[in-house]
Design a protein around this nucleic acid. Structure first.
Lengths: 213, 213
DNA sequence: GTCTATAGCTAGATAGAC
DNA sequence: GTCTATCTAGCTATAGAC
């Protein structure tokens, strides 16, 4: 493949992001030292600063990448023109698949919600990944609002249902050991991922969707 | 009140726990320094070590206290002998009230799930608060299982519904800024706390509870 | 029970050779 | 682009006076 390596992307950069993603997901921003990241990549600590000016920049790029991955997964469901009930099920499927794909995603996404203080001591920060997150959330909320307005869903609060949806998916795949203990099986196993979809879809069908018959 | 101060509980101890609770909830175990805790209490850093042998001990006592508070709130619902559907609603009410009471609770509980690595570098640790958490979770799961067995609930997976219940409550009250943005109102306001109960109970009634009529 | 002083270590970040 | 060496500042924890 001659034209394969057109955009080398520095190779080290990608490796650093991978290692940092795994570590930040496990121990959070403050819990990870750059020494550990460098060691995991096989570089010296100083070399990291050639690719990312500060630790905070590295963290934010990790988060941005993760959220963009998730958004890509959910986009088809959010832009579908299928009936609202079907769209909601497509979204649940996509969300569950997206979170199950990388075990780091749910933890990083969840942490990002209440680690902003941790990650940025100074109050003035726009946060580069916020836009992606906001787009995703707005997509959820619009789907619910439109469904309610169209009479496809019961007259629920779009905000509260969005929160429930996030909790039921993002929390679930971030719960790791506790979740495994509760389910009695690994939450990331193919069986349990499929079961998660089934249970959530069933709950939403009888709990939210208005039955036409 | 003459017999009021029988158990002084060292007074400083309680203050330290309060300050630490607030800080750990905001920035996590690794994100908080004992210097900051001491400063918040109005003591010197060294004095903390008189009350708690290590930082990890302090963290674990904070967590234990928070989980015990929550368990106390949920106990009546879990030990009730009312019909299963009613018990489930009592539990949602109690859980929401317990989490809304102190804004620190949900964040600390959520963090405790995936900060065990962070809080204890060495793998061998029993974790003193685990028993309380396990009791709570088992209570949730038993309620659901019994309700399904008795035919009061649809034949859902007890584990998955427990996970959904946790996500819908604990995540919600840990979501702070994002949650406020989604709801368009402060999540800890009396209005939104009451609305949270209503929305969850409504979802469970039509989604889980078998209608007898 | 609280303090000052300090030990011992690691953190993020920089300088500058190669 | 990667390295060694180093800076400064922070951390947990201890020693020992009061």
């Amino acid at each position: 493949m001659p034209a394969a390596a057109i955009a080398p992307t520095s190779d080290s950069r990608a490796k650093i992001l991978d290692v940092a993603e795994s570590l930040f997901a496990r121990r959070g921003y403050a819990g990870v030292g750059l020494r550990e990241v460098a060691q995991g990549v096989g570089l010296s600590k100083s070399s990291l600063f050639h690719h990312f000016p500060t630790k905070l920049d590295l963290y934010q790029e990790v988060l941005a990448r993760v959220l963009e991955r998730l958004e890509e997964r959910c986009a088809p469901a959010l832009h579908s023109r299928a009936p609202h009930a079907e769209r909601l099920e497509l979204l649940v499927d996509a969300l569950v698949d997206g979170l199950a794909e990388h075990p780091t995603t749910a933890r990083l996404a969840l942490r990002s919600l209440f680690e902003e203080d941790e990650a940025a001591p100074h109050p003035a920060r726009p946060a580069p990944y916020d836009a992606t997150l906001a787009r995703l959330i707005q997509g959820f909320q619009r789907l619910v609002s439109e469904g309610v307005a169209a009479g496809a869903f019961r007259p629920v609060s779009a905000g509260h249902l969005t929160q429930t949806l996030i909790g039921a998916t993002v929390y679930h795949f971030a719960s790791a050991e506790l979740g495994e203990e509760i389910l009695g099986a690994p939450i990331f196993s193919a069986d349990q991922v499929a079961e998660r979809k089934r249970q959530l879809v069933a709950l939403l069908r009888s709990g939210i969707v208005r039955q036409p018959a």
